[in-house]
Nucleic acid binder design. Structure first.
Lengths: 140, 140
DNA sequence: CCATCATTTCGTCAGTTATCGAAATGACGA
DNA sequence: TCGTCATTTCGATAACTGACGAAATGATGG
Protein backbone atom coordinates (compact mmCIF):
# COMPACT_ATOMS: atom_id res chain seq x y z
CA UNK A 1 0.00 0.00 0.00
CA UNK A 2 2.68 2.47 0.95
CA UNK A 3 4.48 1.32 -2.16
CA UNK A 4 1.46 2.03 -4.34
CA UNK A 5 1.04 5.40 -2.70
CA UNK A 6 4.67 6.17 -3.40
CA UNK A 7 4.34 5.21 -7.06
CA UNK A 8 1.27 7.37 -7.55
CA UNK A 9 2.55 10.35 -5.60
CA UNK A 10 5.90 10.30 -7.39
CA UNK A 11 4.04 10.15 -10.69
CA UNK A 12 2.13 13.25 -9.69
CA UNK A 13 5.13 15.10 -8.28
CA UNK A 14 6.36 16.42 -11.60
CA UNK A 15 5.04 19.53 -13.36
CA UNK A 16 5.11 18.01 -16.83
CA UNK A 17 3.04 15.04 -15.69
CA UNK A 18 0.56 17.23 -13.88
CA UNK A 19 0.16 19.29 -17.02
CA UNK A 20 -0.57 16.07 -18.90
CA UNK A 21 -3.20 15.03 -16.37
CA UNK A 22 -4.87 18.42 -16.55
CA UNK A 23 -4.82 18.30 -20.35
CA UNK A 24 -6.49 14.91 -20.35
CA UNK A 25 -9.34 16.19 -18.18
CA UNK A 26 -10.69 17.53 -21.46
CA UNK A 27 -10.73 14.07 -23.02
CA UNK A 28 -8.29 11.66 -24.61
CA UNK A 29 -5.35 12.84 -26.65
CA UNK A 30 -2.73 11.11 -28.74
CA UNK A 31 0.95 11.35 -27.93
CA UNK A 32 1.76 13.85 -30.64
CA UNK A 33 -0.98 16.17 -29.41
CA UNK A 34 0.38 16.11 -25.90
CA UNK A 35 3.86 16.59 -27.29
CA UNK A 36 2.76 19.65 -29.25
CA UNK A 37 1.22 21.28 -26.18
CA UNK A 38 4.04 20.56 -23.76
CA UNK A 39 6.74 21.33 -26.34
CA UNK A 40 8.98 18.47 -25.24
CA UNK A 41 10.71 15.68 -27.12
CA UNK A 42 8.39 12.79 -28.04
CA UNK A 43 10.58 10.35 -26.13
CA UNK A 44 10.19 12.45 -23.00
CA UNK A 45 6.44 12.68 -23.32
CA UNK A 46 6.15 8.97 -24.01
CA UNK A 47 8.06 8.20 -20.86
CA UNK A 48 5.88 10.51 -18.78
CA UNK A 49 2.76 8.88 -20.17
CA UNK A 50 4.11 5.41 -19.45
CA UNK A 51 4.85 6.40 -15.88
CA UNK A 52 1.35 7.78 -15.37
CA UNK A 53 -0.09 4.61 -16.83
CA UNK A 54 1.97 2.39 -14.55
CA UNK A 55 0.73 4.42 -11.61
CA UNK A 56 -2.82 3.60 -12.69
CA UNK A 57 -3.67 7.19 -13.56
CA UNK A 58 -4.00 6.73 -17.31
CA UNK A 59 -5.31 4.23 -19.81
CA UNK A 60 -4.18 3.61 -23.35
CA UNK A 61 -5.90 2.97 -26.63
CA UNK A 62 -4.42 2.41 -30.05
CA UNK A 63 -6.12 3.71 -33.16
CA UNK A 64 -4.11 3.01 -36.29
CA UNK A 65 -0.79 4.75 -36.05
CA UNK A 66 -1.81 6.75 -33.06
CA UNK A 67 -1.90 5.90 -29.39
CA UNK A 68 -4.46 7.76 -27.33
CA UNK A 69 -4.20 8.26 -23.59
CA UNK A 70 -7.04 9.17 -21.26
CA UNK A 71 -7.59 9.48 -17.53
CA UNK A 72 -8.23 6.08 -15.95
CA UNK A 73 -11.89 5.49 -15.26
CA UNK A 74 -12.41 1.99 -13.94
CA UNK A 75 -8.95 1.82 -12.47
CA UNK A 76 -8.63 -0.70 -9.68
CA UNK A 77 -6.28 1.51 -7.73
CA UNK A 78 -8.17 3.49 -5.05
CA UNK A 79 -5.10 5.58 -4.41
CA UNK A 80 -4.95 6.71 -8.04
CA UNK A 81 -8.64 7.60 -7.92
CA UNK A 82 -8.08 9.83 -4.92
CA UNK A 83 -5.18 11.61 -6.54
CA UNK A 84 -7.13 12.18 -9.74
CA UNK A 85 -9.93 13.66 -7.68
CA UNK A 86 -7.55 15.97 -5.88
CA UNK A 87 -5.92 17.16 -9.07
CA UNK A 88 -9.30 17.70 -10.67
CA UNK A 89 -10.04 20.28 -7.97
CA UNK A 90 -6.68 21.99 -8.28
CA UNK A 91 -4.77 24.25 -10.61
CA UNK A 92 -7.76 25.21 -12.73
CA UNK A 93 -6.67 28.83 -12.60
CA UNK A 94 -2.96 28.22 -12.83
CA UNK A 95 -1.36 30.29 -15.62
CA UNK A 96 0.57 27.38 -17.08
CA UNK A 97 -2.48 25.13 -17.08
CA UNK A 98 -4.60 27.84 -18.69
CA UNK A 99 -1.94 28.43 -21.32
CA UNK A 100 -1.84 24.69 -21.99
CA UNK A 101 -5.60 24.72 -22.50
CA UNK A 102 -5.36 27.56 -24.96
CA UNK A 103 -2.66 25.67 -26.81
CA UNK A 104 -4.81 22.55 -26.75
CA UNK A 105 -7.62 24.46 -28.43
CA UNK A 106 -5.26 25.26 -31.28
CA UNK A 107 -4.07 21.69 -31.39
CA UNK A 108 -7.60 20.38 -31.58
CA UNK A 109 -8.29 22.64 -34.54
CA UNK A 110 -5.70 20.76 -36.57
CA UNK A 111 -6.10 17.19 -37.85
CA UNK A 112 -3.84 14.77 -36.06
CA UNK A 113 -2.02 13.81 -39.25
CA UNK A 114 -1.05 17.38 -39.97
CA UNK A 115 0.02 17.91 -36.40
CA UNK A 116 2.28 14.87 -36.42
CA UNK A 117 3.93 15.95 -39.64
CA UNK A 118 4.48 19.58 -38.83
CA UNK A 119 4.58 19.66 -35.05
CA UNK A 120 4.01 23.07 -33.52
CA UNK A 121 4.39 24.74 -36.91
CA UNK A 122 0.95 23.41 -37.82
CA UNK A 123 -0.51 25.70 -35.18
CA UNK A 124 0.94 28.97 -36.41
CA UNK A 125 -1.73 29.70 -39.02
CA UNK A 126 -4.53 29.34 -36.49
CA UNK A 127 -2.73 31.31 -33.81
CA UNK A 128 -3.98 34.70 -32.47
CA UNK A 129 -3.32 36.30 -35.87
CA UNK A 130 -0.36 38.27 -34.60
CA UNK A 131 1.07 38.61 -38.11
CA UNK A 132 -0.31 38.03 -41.59
CA UNK A 133 -0.80 41.71 -42.38
CA UNK A 134 -1.93 41.79 -46.01
CA UNK A 135 -4.97 39.65 -46.64
CA UNK A 136 -7.41 37.12 -45.23
CA UNK A 137 -9.27 37.98 -42.10
CA UNK A 138 -8.36 41.60 -41.57
CA UNK A 139 -10.96 43.95 -40.03
CA UNK A 140 -12.28 44.48 -43.56
CA UNK B 1 0.12 27.56 -8.11
CA UNK B 2 1.73 24.78 -10.09
CA UNK B 3 4.87 25.55 -8.15
CA UNK B 4 3.08 25.20 -4.84
CA UNK B 5 1.49 21.99 -6.01
CA UNK B 6 4.90 20.69 -6.98
CA UNK B 7 6.38 21.55 -3.61
CA UNK B 8 3.58 19.83 -1.72
CA UNK B 9 3.40 16.76 -3.92
CA UNK B 10 7.17 16.29 -3.83
CA UNK B 11 7.03 16.58 -0.06
CA UNK B 12 4.45 13.82 0.02
CA UNK B 13 6.21 11.61 -2.52
CA UNK B 14 8.57 10.00 -0.05
CA UNK B 15 7.76 7.07 2.24
CA UNK B 16 9.58 8.48 5.27
CA UNK B 17 7.69 11.73 5.03
CA UNK B 18 4.36 9.98 4.62
CA UNK B 19 5.13 7.91 7.69
CA UNK B 20 5.78 11.16 9.56
CA UNK B 21 2.48 12.64 8.44
CA UNK B 22 0.59 9.52 9.47
CA UNK B 23 2.36 9.52 12.85
CA UNK B 24 1.38 13.12 13.46
CA UNK B 25 -2.28 12.33 12.85
CA UNK B 26 -2.19 11.11 16.45
CA UNK B 27 -1.03 14.51 17.70
CA UNK B 28 2.16 16.50 17.94
CA UNK B 29 5.52 14.84 18.49
CA UNK B 30 9.01 16.13 19.11
CA UNK B 31 11.87 15.39 16.74
CA UNK B 32 13.44 12.74 18.91
CA UNK B 33 10.14 10.86 19.14
CA UNK B 34 9.77 10.81 15.39
CA UNK B 35 13.40 9.80 15.10
CA UNK B 36 12.89 6.87 17.47
CA UNK B 37 9.90 5.57 15.51
CA UNK B 38 11.41 5.94 12.04
CA UNK B 39 14.84 4.71 13.16
CA UNK B 40 16.70 7.24 11.05
CA UNK B 41 19.49 9.70 11.85
CA UNK B 42 18.27 12.88 13.59
CA UNK B 43 19.67 15.00 10.79
CA UNK B 44 17.65 13.07 8.26
CA UNK B 45 14.43 13.39 10.24
CA UNK B 46 15.02 17.08 10.81
CA UNK B 47 15.41 17.62 7.11
CA UNK B 48 12.20 15.73 6.34
CA UNK B 49 10.31 17.76 8.92
CA UNK B 50 11.68 21.00 7.52
CA UNK B 51 10.59 20.01 4.04
CA UNK B 52 7.08 19.18 5.20
CA UNK B 53 6.91 22.49 7.04
CA UNK B 54 8.03 24.45 3.99
CA UNK B 55 5.30 22.69 2.02
CA UNK B 56 2.78 23.99 4.55
CA UNK B 57 1.90 20.55 5.83
CA UNK B 58 3.38 20.95 9.32
CA UNK B 59 3.69 23.54 12.02
CA UNK B 60 6.36 23.90 14.64
CA UNK B 61 6.41 24.72 18.34
CA UNK B 62 9.35 24.95 20.68
CA UNK B 63 9.06 23.82 24.30
CA UNK B 64 12.36 24.16 26.12
CA UNK B 65 14.93 21.97 24.48
CA UNK B 66 12.40 20.20 22.37
CA UNK B 67 10.78 21.15 19.10
CA UNK B 68 7.32 19.74 18.50
CA UNK B 69 5.80 19.31 15.07
CA UNK B 70 2.13 18.87 14.29
CA UNK B 71 -0.09 18.75 11.23
CA UNK B 72 -0.86 22.23 9.97
CA UNK B 73 -4.33 23.37 10.97
CA UNK B 74 -4.89 26.94 9.88
CA UNK B 75 -2.48 26.65 7.01
CA UNK B 76 -3.10 29.18 4.28
CA UNK B 77 -2.20 26.71 1.59
CA UNK B 78 -5.34 25.10 0.12
CA UNK B 79 -3.20 22.62 -1.74
CA UNK B 80 -1.61 21.37 1.47
CA UNK B 81 -5.03 21.03 3.05
CA UNK B 82 -6.21 18.82 0.20
CA UNK B 83 -3.18 16.60 0.41
CA UNK B 84 -3.55 16.22 4.16
CA UNK B 85 -7.16 15.21 3.63
CA UNK B 86 -6.18 12.65 1.04
CA UNK B 87 -3.49 11.13 3.21
CA UNK B 88 -5.84 11.04 6.18
CA UNK B 89 -8.06 8.67 4.19
CA UNK B 90 -5.19 6.49 3.01
CA UNK B 91 -2.78 3.92 4.32
CA UNK B 92 -4.61 3.33 7.60
CA UNK B 93 -4.21 -0.40 7.15
CA UNK B 94 -0.75 -0.35 5.68
CA UNK B 95 1.62 -2.70 7.54
CA UNK B 96 4.39 -0.13 7.88
CA UNK B 97 2.02 2.52 9.15
CA UNK B 98 0.49 0.10 11.63
CA UNK B 99 3.91 -0.93 12.84
CA UNK B 100 4.83 2.73 13.25
CA UNK B 101 1.74 3.23 15.37
CA UNK B 102 2.67 0.32 17.60
CA UNK B 103 6.14 1.75 17.97
CA UNK B 104 4.66 5.15 18.73
CA UNK B 105 2.67 3.64 21.58
CA UNK B 106 5.93 2.42 23.11
CA UNK B 107 7.55 5.79 22.52
CA UNK B 108 4.68 7.60 24.21
CA UNK B 109 5.10 5.39 27.27
CA UNK B 110 8.56 6.83 27.85
CA UNK B 111 9.27 10.41 29.03
CA UNK B 112 10.81 12.51 26.31
CA UNK B 113 13.99 13.13 28.30
CA UNK B 114 14.67 9.45 28.68
CA UNK B 115 13.94 8.85 25.03
CA UNK B 116 16.36 11.53 23.89
CA UNK B 117 19.12 10.15 26.10
CA UNK B 118 18.75 6.51 25.29
CA UNK B 119 17.12 6.50 21.88
CA UNK B 120 15.44 3.25 20.92
CA UNK B 121 17.08 1.46 23.86
CA UNK B 122 14.63 3.24 26.14
CA UNK B 123 11.84 1.25 24.52
CA UNK B 124 13.24 -2.22 25.17
CA UNK B 125 11.95 -2.57 28.72
CA UNK B 126 8.39 -1.79 27.69
CA UNK B 127 8.57 -3.95 24.63
CA UNK B 128 6.67 -7.28 24.26
CA UNK B 129 8.74 -8.74 27.17
CA UNK B 130 10.79 -10.91 24.89
CA UNK B 131 13.60 -11.17 27.45
CA UNK B 132 14.03 -10.35 31.17
CA UNK B 133 13.65 -13.93 32.41
CA UNK B 134 14.41 -13.81 36.12
CA UNK B 135 12.39 -11.28 38.06
CA UNK B 136 9.92 -8.42 37.87
CA UNK B 137 6.67 -8.96 36.13
CA UNK B 138 6.68 -12.69 35.53
CA UNK B 139 3.31 -14.48 35.25
CA UNK B 140 3.36 -15.47 38.96
C1' DC C 1 29.19 32.93 31.77
C1' DC C 2 29.53 28.05 30.65
C1' DA C 3 28.48 23.20 29.85
C1' DT C 4 24.90 20.35 28.14
C1' DC C 5 22.02 18.64 24.88
C1' DA C 6 18.14 18.64 21.21
C1' DT C 7 17.95 20.26 16.87
C1' DT C 8 19.58 22.18 12.60
C1' DT C 9 22.89 23.13 8.94
C1' DC C 10 26.83 21.73 6.12
C1' DG C 11 29.40 18.75 3.13
C1' DT C 12 29.55 14.51 0.95
C1' DC C 13 28.18 10.23 -1.25
C1' DA C 14 25.31 6.90 -3.70
C1' DG C 15 21.15 6.32 -6.11
C1' DT C 16 17.40 8.25 -8.80
C1' DT C 17 15.25 11.17 -12.37
C1' DA C 18 14.24 14.34 -16.43
C1' DT C 19 15.78 15.21 -20.65
C1' DC C 20 17.49 14.33 -25.17
C1' DG C 21 19.08 11.92 -29.72
C1' DA C 22 19.45 7.56 -31.89
C1' DA C 23 17.80 3.20 -32.75
C1' DA C 24 14.02 -0.32 -32.35
C1' DT C 25 9.11 -1.44 -32.63
C1' DG C 26 4.80 -1.97 -34.75
C1' DA C 27 0.82 -0.69 -37.65
C1' DC C 28 -0.70 1.12 -41.96
C1' DG C 29 -0.91 1.61 -47.03
C1' DA C 30 1.18 0.95 -51.51
C1' DT D 1 6.69 -7.35 -48.97
C1' DC D 2 8.36 -2.92 -48.11
C1' DG D 3 8.61 1.88 -46.90
C1' DT D 4 6.54 5.29 -43.91
C1' DC D 5 5.69 7.18 -39.75
C1' DA D 6 3.95 7.48 -34.69
C1' DT D 7 5.51 5.69 -30.71
C1' DT D 8 8.58 3.36 -27.59
C1' DT D 9 13.00 1.77 -25.87
C1' DC D 10 17.93 2.44 -25.30
C1' DG D 11 21.96 4.89 -23.78
C1' DA D 12 24.04 8.90 -22.04
C1' DT D 13 24.24 13.14 -19.39
C1' DA D 14 23.18 16.69 -16.07
C1' DA D 15 20.55 17.77 -12.10
C1' DC D 16 18.22 16.38 -8.02
C1' DT D 17 17.35 13.60 -3.71
C1' DG D 18 17.88 10.87 0.62
C1' DA D 19 21.03 9.37 3.66
C1' DC D 20 24.76 10.04 6.97
C1' DG D 21 28.52 12.13 10.17
C1' DA D 22 30.48 16.34 11.69
C1' DA D 23 30.05 20.86 12.98
C1' DA D 24 27.03 24.90 14.15
C1' DT D 25 22.98 26.73 16.53
C1' DG D 26 20.25 27.89 20.36
C1' DA D 27 17.87 27.24 24.73
C1' DT D 28 18.32 25.37 29.57
C1' DG D 29 20.23 25.04 33.98
C1' DG D 30 23.98 25.35 36.83
Amino acid sequence: MLETFETVSKAVADPSRVRILKLLEGGELCVCQVTAVLDLAPATVSKHLAMLKIAGLLQQRRDGKWVYYRLAERELNPCARKFLGLIGGCLNEDPTIEEDRRMLALVNAVPVQVLCNEGRAALASNAPASKAPSCCGGPS
